[in-house]
Nucleic acid binder design. Structure first.
Lengths: 350, 350
DNA sequence: AGTTACATTTGGATCGTTCTAATCGGGCAA
DNA sequence: TTGCCCGATTAGAACGATCCAAATGTAACT
């Protein structure tokens, strides 16, 4: 337990009460806009509040009322624009409802996630929005969170099985359907040999997107070769490095469904380094629709996930849960939308 | 004052005390690792804490101790990767020191900034890190913050004069020097007609960068034409649109110092749309060194500001201030570093 | 006048912690 | 036996708000 900052003398309800000769209770009623209090006293009290520069002490109020006015937002990677926009959306909706956002970043480390969860819980958040770190698992999260605050899982599922009584809400993207849309789009453009590029095997979103890709291929009666699935870290840099793996395949693909936009942009770079023009000699799609997707050369066909809107939605879901703590847990799957741009050209031979 | 979420029954010090037959005070001492308490009782208490799944109530402790364990972080634009990385850095350093980050986004609106400041202050943060919205001014900020928490200004100065007694700390980037370095670099490459592209006149960082540019030009005895300064919003899109203004100038420039990376990337796009190859037919530099700068086509010569590191630094500065509330206010100017990449080619005729 | 009704105000307990000063038991010197 | 010190423990009052039941004042009605 670390030492913390002392605070200067603050103006309290007692000061106000003394200052305009009413009781502490009356001032409290004024603050909360109670209809019980007389017009004239209300005006007097409000003047005094202004005069002394009073600021409400929410911590004290929450203690007495056994309520909370904050929500914890725990993210695996704030530096990723997708999560940054998500966070902005969360904060916007929470702020509008009078809640404050307690931020915590885990940097994809499950152990930091434990620490951050523990630390934020001490501040008594009313709820938690958690985008889990990569190897986080249900058991550990449950151990620290318990029943102390309702939890909304965002974006990723947790490893391990979660016990019966832990009914956590979920907000996920429709990864499978999105990847299916992208794949079907490439097929419609005439591609037959399509790879699935990037992402890690053990990430739930990657598995789902891959499943959507497989689904589309099989529905179209197209084969999927094992060496058409190329793993790499979901970063531009690693994607660029792994580009060559595409062309080492027995049957060289003419297009790739990429795990996300970062990977797709990295792949574009890798293609150029091999003298290929993405969007002309090779087709590809992304996932996320980050800002750069629209402005690239070529612009990137991708799936729009509207992270800001997802953030607002996540905030709504937790706040809804707060009002109905006993309602059955809810799984929301947010739709994604295919945005067709230049990168998904027809195959060169067609 | 809005209604907030009720909280389930919590385990308190009293529960623990009753559970292992000691007083509340003793349990409190155990929690804070006091040497006063006997080994055997400490062990007993610690067992009981675990058994009942106790979590510390920091709000109650802070109330009694009149201390704070949180810092407010108020940002004008979290969706901007520069600020997102900054926020991650702040949270990392704060978390390591046992503080929690109260997040607030203003979306470049001065009135929302007022509201957010007011709301966060009610939670009694120990300090505030503020990256002001564009038209925010010292008077309004002072009115709501007052002496209630020490403030660290980041990245932008506030409009208006700030009164004598409000001694706020500052952490700024060395904008002027950075722009000067970029301009000198272009001059050394042989450019003579260099424009300053992007940003808004009334932003302090833009003024400073422009001043650095002018300084370098004058030191090299080069002229600066009025129509070599082109204003636009600091976004890719607007920068792309304003590209033509460069070529409407009486003396068409061969290079441009851009307000930031976003603008530079937008300008690249605009150049390509005119059939010019950035980094070959026209040279340009950015500012910020965002992730995409290194991976662009061509890669972008720019000024590295290390936003993550700046975030950690900002956190350190506030925490330092908390320990010495009376020390004189401090202005820190963080160095920036020129990163030379492909976009700053020599002029085509040279 | 006595009673009731209503609008307004208030004292005191309370939330979960920390702090201060007091208490306790026991060993040891006088 | 008394007195004193010492380590270990604790009762009770804070912190700044809310809540509840009770008190106050005024007007209206019988």
């Amino acid at each position: 337990m670390s030492s913390h900052a002392p605070i200067g003398r603050k103006v309290t309800l007692n000061d106000i009460a003394a200052g305009c000769d009413v009781s502490r209770a009356t001032v409290s009623l004024v603050l909360r806009g109670s209809p019980l209090v007389n017009k004239r006293t209300r005006a007097r009290v409000e003047d005094e509040l202004r005069r002394q520069g009073y600021v409400y002490n929410r911590a004290a109020a929450n203690l007495r009322r056994r309520s909370s006015s904050s929500i914890a937002l725990i993210l695996n990677d704030l530096a990723n624009p997708f999560f940054a926009e998500f966070a902005a959306g969360v904060d916007e909706a929470l702020g509008a409802a009078g809640f404050v956002t307690l931020l915590g970043c885990t940097g994809e480390s499950a152990s930091r996630e434990q620490a951050v969860l523990g630390s934020l819980l001490e501040h008594g958040p009313g709820g938690i929005i958690l985008s889990p770190a990569e190897h986080s698992n249900a058991h550990d999260v449950l151990a620290v969170v318990g029943r102390r605050a309702p939890l909304l899982l965002f974006n990723r599922e947790l490893g391990g099985t979660l016990p019966e009584f832990a009914h956590w809400d979920q907000l996920m993207l429709d990864n499978q359907h999105g990847a299916r849309l992208a794949t079907e789009h490439l097929i419609a453009r005439g591609h037959r040999r399509i790879a699935f590029f990037g992402g890690h095997h053990d990430s739930s979103s990657c598995r789902q997107r891959h499943a959507g890709y497989v689904e589309a291929m099989h529905t179209a009666r197209l084969r999927t070769e094992p060496d058409w699935r190329i793993e790499c870290a979901p970063t531009r840099l690693d994607a660029a490095h792994r580009t060559s793996a595409l062309f080492d395949a027995t049957y060289v693909p003419t297009a790739a469904v990429c795990y996300n936009d970062a990977v797709a942009l990295g792949l574009m770079l890798g293609l150029r380094q091999r003298g290929l023009r993405p969007g002309q000699d090779f087709a590809l799609t992304g996932f996320d629709d980050i800002a750069e997707a629209a402005l690239g050369m070529p612009s990137l066909t991708t799936l729009s996930t509207a992270p800001h809107e997802r953030g607002r939605q996540a905030a709504q879901l937790v706040m809804q849960r707060l009002q109905q703590p006993q309602a059955a847990s809810h799984q929301t799957i947010a739709p994604v939308q295919l945005v067709v741009r230049e990168s998904s050209c027809p195959p060169p031979t067609a």
